[in-house]
């Protein structure tokens, strides 16, 4: 079986993992006050779905450990895996803007 190098658990069978899709920037009302349904739909549904090197969220099911993997979608090679804090260094602020009175 193909092996996935998990940053927490080392080399494990790839069947122990879930691929949770490409990394995307979530529309944030803290950044852009005009986030509408269309922007949400774009974030939720549209994908690059690239043929080549992609950057994705993966999760090791048994330990619920989430990390980032870079792999090649044509050659099926896993290039690099690393903990999410290599990219996400700051806490994301989800506080919604105040509702006008």
């Amino acid at each position: 079986m193909k092996l996935m190098p998990c940053p927490l658990n080392g080399l494990r069978n790839i069947s122990e993992f879930i691929c949770a899709g490409e990394l995307k920037d979530m529309p944030l009302t803290t950044v852009d006050k005009t986030v509408d349904d269309k922007a949400w739909a774009d974030y939720l549904f549209n994908q690059d779905n690239a043929a080549g090197i992609v950057r994705e969220w993966w999760c090791h099911s048994a330990t619920s450990y989430w990390f980032i993997a870079e792999r090649h979608t044509v050659t099926d090679e896993i290039i690099r895996t690393y903990p999410a804090d290599e990219i996400y260094k700051q806490r994301v602020d989800f506080t919604p803007p105040p509702v006008p009175e």
């Binding site: 079986m1 193909k2 790839i14 069947s15 879930i18 691929c19 779905n49 043929a51 992609v54 979608t73 044509v74 050659t75 099926d76």
Partner: peptide, 13 residues
């Protein structure tokens, strides 16, 4: 297959 790919290889799994 369990994860996205553009390769038509077959797997034993």
């Amino acid at each position: 297959d369990p994860y996205p790919l553009y390769s038509t290889r077959s797997t034993l799994d």
